[in-house]
């Protein structure tokens, strides 16, 4: 347990036996089958699975974007959804950073970030702006805080989106492949930045990815999902000390951890390939 985690008592996420079938009366696509995950407060929890297996489906259920077909999800012991109320309430205690980025294009970075506390009336517009500036400075974005999302790189946009989520002081940060389609070098920079933001603003992180090295580099734990319908195949704790930086990537322990995860993931990837699931971006 690191310092960041110890500060946290909130943000334990418990996913219990969750299944999800899309369009049960029609085509009946089974996306999740009896998924269970126990995520401790302040943990960086990586969910690794082949493309199309149902990762986003699981994240959307936690966020309250759609109902589950069965099972329940708890946050700090409180029921978010179960068989009686299958769809969780959307709430700022669980903030999502979306697969392709969803900053509002019509707001500057500063206005994007200060939006949450203002609509919730948690802070006055002036206070919200000051807090947003402080967080943007932390993330190295203060110099471009007056730009629109369309004017900046996708890496910067994704950082800003994480800041926009963090300002709401969520208990859980839900990240849906935020660095998909970025080149390896940019990804490495984004990873270090995310870990830095995490140290400064500890929070439970639920991170979806299909990138093995990303999972090992960032996570306390990596949950490996099966091909669709997704269920949890194995949870592998990653035994590498924080703070981690790019040097970890070339170390022997890192390589061994990657080997271990790769062995577990490989058979699933082959099954996904055989099933003809869409290629990764």
């Amino acid at each position: 347990m690191n310092a960041a985690q110890q500060k946290l008592q909130q943000g334990a996420l418990s996913i219990q036996d969750v299944s999800k079938i899309y369009d049960p009366d029609g085509t009946a696509v089974e996306a999740l089958s009896h998924c269970s995950l126990e995520i401790a407060a302040g943990e960086i929890y990586m969910v690794l699975g082949p493309s199309g297996c149902g990762k986003t489906t699981l994240l959307n259920a936690v966020a309250g974007f759609h109902p589950v077909s069965s099972g329940r999800i708890l946050l700090d012991g409180e029921v978010l959804c179960n068989d009686k109320t299958p769809q969780a309430q959307q709430n700022s205690d669980r903030m999502v950073v979306f697969q392709n980025g969803a900053l509002f294009p019509w707001k500057t970075l500063l206005d994007n970030v200060s939006y949450g506390p203002i609509v919730q009336k948690r802070l006055s517009p002036k206070e919200a702006r000051e807090k947003a500036e402080a967080l943007l400075r932390e993330a190295g974005l203060i110099d471009i805080s007056h730009k629109y999302p369309g004017e900046i790189s996708s890496g910067m946009a994704r950082r800003a989106e994480i800041v926009r989520a963090l300002i709401n002081e969520p208990k859980v940060l839900l990240l849906d492949e935020p660095y998909r389609a970025m080149d390896a070098l940019t990804k490495a920079i984004m990873h270090e930045n995310l870990l830095k933001m995490y140290e400064l603003n500890p929070v439970t992180i639920f991170f979806i990815t299909h990138d093995l090295e990303e999972a090992v580099f960032l996570g306390h734990k990596v949950a490996i999902m099966t091909t669709r319908p997704a269920t949890v195949k194995e949870v592998i704790p990653i035994d590498l000390p924080y703070p981690r930086d790019h040097r970890v990537l070339s170390s022997e322990p890192f390589r061994l951890q990657v080997q271990r995860v790769k062995a577990s993931v490989r058979s699933e990837a082959e099954k996904a390939f055989a099933a003809g699931e869409k290629e990764l971006a």
């Binding site: 966020a63 309250g64 974007f65 959307q90 709430n91 700022s92 669980r94 903030m95 999502v96 979306f98 392709n100 969803a102 509002f104 939006y115 949450g116 609509v119 919730q120 709401n168």
Partner: peptide, 22 residues
Amino acid sequence: DIRYLRAAQSMGANQWQLFRRV
């Protein structure tokens, strides 16, 4: 884009704010 609506809703926007601001 539904992601804009979801993002705003998660941040606590009500129906009118969704309409007006998104």
